[in-house]
């Protein structure tokens, strides 16, 4: 069996007296698309921060491709898309992408920039300042920035938040393409419909721990819905 793209073992995280994660254990195989479902505050973003190496777990370990997530080689294989833009409003789309292509040492940068801009349909606005973009356009450029260095592992933290239908459709198409290309994708969301449509596998996180881990094909969508909503009921959300 190949080395897992991601291996999370007994990870806990607390911020003083506040517990964010408790004994989270799971692994993701290369090329797998996994959705982490859970209500707001369940610990999804904290988990992604630990996986990406931005935050350290209080207990437990995380390995990306068999090594430490903070390793420079691993960081180059990783991309994060969240509600944060990771873009500079006072630079144009092209300048932002050129900046990140230098940081990530993207080979044939200009060609790659043209490709990702075309993929997110922003070629015609490449010379405009990002500050003048709408929310949807900004999120599309965020996606372009994340895909620029062709990452092996994509971490998506509620990427559909605030997007219009057109942008959601475009993101879904891009994610399907990434999946076909064999990229490993980890998506956190509370949108059950999108998660079941895109993923191979789902995890339900509730009260800061994983309460359900299953394959989408083996599970009736109603069962997933039931697992998700029962976790919400447990946490006092009607």
């Amino acid at each position: 069996m190949s080395v897992p793209a991601l291996e999370v073992s007994g990870v806990s995280k607390d911020f003083g007296r506040i517990i964010a994660l408790r004994d989270v254990t799971f692994s993701v195989q290369p090329g797998e698309f996994v959705s982490i479902l859970g209500r707001n505050g369940a610990g999804k973003t904290t988990l992604l921060n630990i996986i990406s190496g931005v935050s350290r777990p209080s207990e437990g370990t995380v390995q990306l491709f068999g090594t430490n997530p903070s390793d420079r080689e691993n960081k180059a294989k990783l991309a994060v898309i969240s509600h944060e833009m990771f873009l500079y409003g006072n630079l144009t789309a092209l300048e932002n992408l050129e900046y990140y292509s230098r940081i990530y040492s993207v080979p044939d940068a200009q060609e790659r920039i043209e490709t990702v801009l075309k993929d997110v349909e922003l070629t015609h606005r490449r010379f405009d300042l990002v500050a003048t973009y709408s929310r949807g356009m900004t999120q599309r450029l965020t996606i372009a920035r994340a895909l620029l260095h062709e990452p092996s592992l994509l971490l998506l933290d509620e990427p559909f938040t605030g997007l219009d239908q057109h942008a959601i459709g475009m993101l879904i198409t891009l994610l399907k393409r990434q999946k076909e290309m064999g990229r490993t994708i980890l998506l956190t969301t509370h949108d059950l419909h999108t998660a079941t449509a895109l993923s191979d596998r789902y995890l339900v996180i509730s009260k800061h721990k994983i309460v359900k881990d299953g394959l989408i094909v083996d599970t009736n969508p109603d069962k997933i819905r039931q697992a998700f909503f029962s976790s919400e009921v447990e946490e006092g959300v009607s």
Binding site: G53, V54, R72, K75, F86, Y88, Y104
Partner: peptide
């Protein structure tokens, strides 16, 4: 200006020293 739009987090994610 780095904190704005989460660029500080983007810096922490960069594959550089």
């Amino acid at each position: 200006m780095e904190k704005e739009n989460g660029n500080l987090r983007a810096m922490a994610l960069m594959p550089v020293d």
